[in-house]
C-alpha cells in the first residue's frame, strides 16, 4: 500500500523562499538550497519548488537555482512556475527536477498536458490548480490563473477530470481561500476533486495544526499534503508531522 506523502513547498521569489497569506503579503522564509536539503534529510516524501514570479521560461538563474537545490535533494522533486512549453520541461528535468507542475499554460493550452505526457510520461506531469470558491454557490469552485490573480469561468472539478484524460499524472490542488491562513485545508474541495479523478491529489493551502493535515488526508481523501508555513517557520518538523499522522492510523513512511 502506498503511504500518504508529506510535501514541503518552496515558494521562490528573487532566489529566496517566501510565504504569504492568500497569495499576498509575502515574508522571507529562508534559502531554497538550505531548506531543500534540510527537508530531504528530515524525511519529507517529496519537495515542490514553485517560482511564484512565473519566470522559468525566461530566467536562466531560476534554472540554475533548481540545479543547486536538486544537488542535495534525494526525494522526488517537482518544479513549476511559468512553464509554457514541452522543451522547458525537458530543460528542468535535465537540471534535476523529476516532475513539472503546469498551471496557467495548461488552462490556455490544455494540449500541453498531452504533449508533455507523451514525451516524458504522465508520472512527470503535475497539473496545478488554484481553486477559488464561487461566491453565492455552495461547493462550487472556479479555476484562477496567473498566480491566482485572474479568475476564469472554468469549473475546478471538470478541469481536473479533463486534465487526467489529457495525461496529467497528479493534481496539485491549492485552495486560494485557505492558502496561508493556517485555518485548515478546504476539505470539501479536496474530497470533490479526489472523488472525481483516479490520479493522486495533493492538497494544498491552509495547513495549520497537525490535525488539519490528518483531516484532509482522511475526510478530504487526499493522497498527499503540501505545506509551507508550518515547516518554514519551525512550528513542526517533518518528524513531528509524521509521528502525529501515524498515531492517527494514517499510513506514512516512518522517519529515521
Amino acid at each position: 500500500m502506498l503511504t500518504k506523502r508529506i510535501i514541503p513547498c518552496l515558494d521562490v521569489k528573487d532566489n529566496r523562499v517566501v510565504k504569504g497569506v492568500n497569495f499576498l503579503n509575502l515574508r522571507d522564509a529562508g534559502d531554497p538550497v538550505e531548506l531543500g536539503a534540510r527537508y530531504s534529510a528530515e524525511g519529507a516524501d517529496e519537495l515542490v519548488f514553485l517560482d511564484i514570479t512565473a519566470t522559468i521560461r525566461s530566467n536562466r538563474t531560476i534554472v540554475e537555482l533548481v540545479e543547486k537545490v536538486a544537488k542535495n535533494v534525494f526525494i522526488p522533486f517537482t518544479v513549476g512556475g511559468g512553464i509554457t512549453k514541452v522543451d522547458e520541461i525537458g530543460l528542468l528535468l535535465r537540471s534535476g527536477a523529476d516532475k513539472c507542475s503546469i498551471n496557467t499554460a495548461a488552462v490556455m493550452n490544455p494540449n500541453l498536458l498531452a504533449e508533455a505526457a507523451q514525451r516524458f510520461g504522465n508520472q512527470c506531469v503535475v497539473l496545478a490548480i488554484d481553486a477559488k470558491r464561487t461566491e453565492g454557490k455552495k461547493d462550487k469552485w472556479h479555476v484562477t490563473v496567473k498566480a491566482g490573480s485572474e479568475p476564469t469561468d472554468i469549473d475546478v472539478i471538470e478541469w481536473a477530470v479533463k486534465a487526467q484524460k489529457l495525461g496529467a499524472g497528479e493534481i496539485l490542488l491549492t485552495s486560494m481561500d485557505a492558502d496561508g491562513t493556517k485555518e485548515g485545508y478546504d476539505l470539501e474541495l479536496t474530497a470533490a476533486v479526489s472523488d472525481a479523478v483516479d490520479i493522486p491529489v495533493i492538497a494544498s493551502g491552509g495547513a495549520g495544526t497537525l490535525a488539519s493535515l490528518a483531516e484532509v488526508l482522511d475526510k478530504g481523501k487526499a493522497d498527499a499534503v503540501l505545506a509551507a508555513s508550518i515547516f518554514h517557520f519551525g512550528e513542526y518538523t517533518v518528524k513531528d508531522t509524521k509521528d502525529f499522522l501515524a498515531s492517527k492510523g494514517i499510513p506514512i513512511r516512518p522517519v529515521g
Binding site: M1, L2, T3, R5, D45, G121, N122, Q123, G169, E170, D198, I199, P200, D223, A224, R253
Partner: peptide, 12 residues
Amino acid sequence: GRLSIPHMGWNL
C-alpha cells in the same frame, strides 16, 4: 479494488 496508475509514491 481499483488501482490508480501510475503506481506513484512510497511503498514498502
